[in-house]
């Protein structure tokens, strides 16, 4: 078994003048893994994926694909990469069939092999019966499916999907998930960027949470969620009593950990209900006024909230 990582990013940075969009990202993706890049809009996900696919030259750092360094001239490596962009990268006045023929030819396919592959991917995305219709006559979900099909024609070894389900109806979204799971079962390595935590939880073996150009957490989704214990309680307090409150609740048995982020307290609880009751009692004893109170069940959204104090969908 080949143990060379399919993708290796080492200290990737990207600056636009004084703005640092990506501030030194490093990770590896093993062959056959589905790796998630989770973060809010503007976190640096698309910039990272642009560097990983050769769309953009990093300001610093390296990208290796199957052990070889990626450069703009490395066409042999580009043949291993499949890319599904966030926007619908199709020619609307051409049919789905003509779009796929074109992209297949760009990747070096031709003749019977090309036509056979086009038929296969159309079958995969269940659009064979609409193949000769112009893309502009398709629904949004159908366009998304052809968008994905175009990235699979040349049978890449690694597939990059940049938020592929934005604006897609639930039925089509589910179809996309099933396709991705099926492809991964056949051995395809996948990097999947999203700001929907449920997608990352469902599809990804590991997730890197990215915010402001940096990876703030990297682990299997369930491990990250378990680290939160029973959930998260977010408390806001008046009258400058937050530090003292913070110290007291750390002594509670129902509380696993707590940290102050800006003017709020993020409390990881073993059990959110018990922790809530205990914290209210402590606040009462201290004569502290609680200004806000939120309970978050354990999921990746809560993990992000715990790390940044902000919601994924800000």
């Amino acid at each position: 078994m080949n143990s060379t990582p399919m993708i290796k990013a080492t200290n990737l940075k990207k600056s636009y003048g004084e703005l640092e969009a990506v501030k030194g990202i490093s990770f590896e993706i093993a062959r056959g893994e589905v790796f998630g890049l989770l973060g809010p809009n503007g976190a640096g996900k698309s910039t990272t994926i642009a560097m990983l696919t050769g769309l953009m030259k990093p300001t610093d750092g390296t990208v290796k694909v199957a052990g070889d360094e990626l450069s703009s001239k490395a066409n042999h490596l580009k043949r291993k990469i499949g890319f599904i962009p966030q926007e619908l990268a199709l020619y609307p006045t051409l049919s789905a069939y003509d779009n796929l023929l074109f992209f297949g030819r760009i990747y070096g396919l031709h003749g019977k092999i090309l036509r056979s592959r086009v038929d296969e991917v159309l079958e995969m995305v269940s659009l064979k019966d609409r193949a000769k219709d112009q893309i502009e006559t398709y629904s949004g979900g159908m366009k998304r499916r052809i968008n994905i099909a175009a990235g699979l024609l040349h049978q890449p070894e690694v597939l990059f999907l940049d938020e592929p389900t934005v604006g897609v109806d639930p039925q089509s979204r589910n179809a996309i998930f099933e396709s991705i799971e099926g492809l991964n079962q056949q051995g395809l390595t996948i990097l999947y960027t999203t700001h929907y935590m449920e997608e990352a939880e469902r599809l990804c073996h590991r997730v890197a949470i990215i915010d402001h150009g940096q990876i703030i957490a990297l682990d299997a989704p369930q491990s990250m969620i378990h680290s939160l214990g029973g959930g998260l309680v977010r408390v806001g307090l008046m009258n400058g009593k937050l530090p003292a409150f913070h110290t007291k609740i750390l002594e509670l048995s129902s509380v696993k950990d707590a940290q102050t982020i800006e003017s709020e307290l993020m409390v990881q609880a073993h059990n959110t209900r018990n922790a809530l009751v205990d914290m209210l009692e402590v606040a009462n004893q201290m004569d502290a006024t609680i200004t806000s109170l939120e309970i978050h069940e354990p999921n990746l959204e809560t993990v992000f909230l715990n790390l940044t104090g902000r919601s994924l969908r800000n």
């Binding site: 696919t53 050769g54 769309l55 066409n75 042999h76 580009k78 043949r79 990469i81 890319f83 962009p85 966030q86 926007e87 619908l88 990268a89 199709l90 020619y91 609307p92 992209f103 760009i106 990747y107 070096g108 175009a150 990235g151």
Partner: peptide, 12 residues
């Protein structure tokens, strides 16, 4: 439209 991105990623 984004098709240019696809072409830039391709071995072209």
């Amino acid at each position: 439209k984004g098709t240019f991105r696809r072409l830039l990623v391709a071995p072209l």
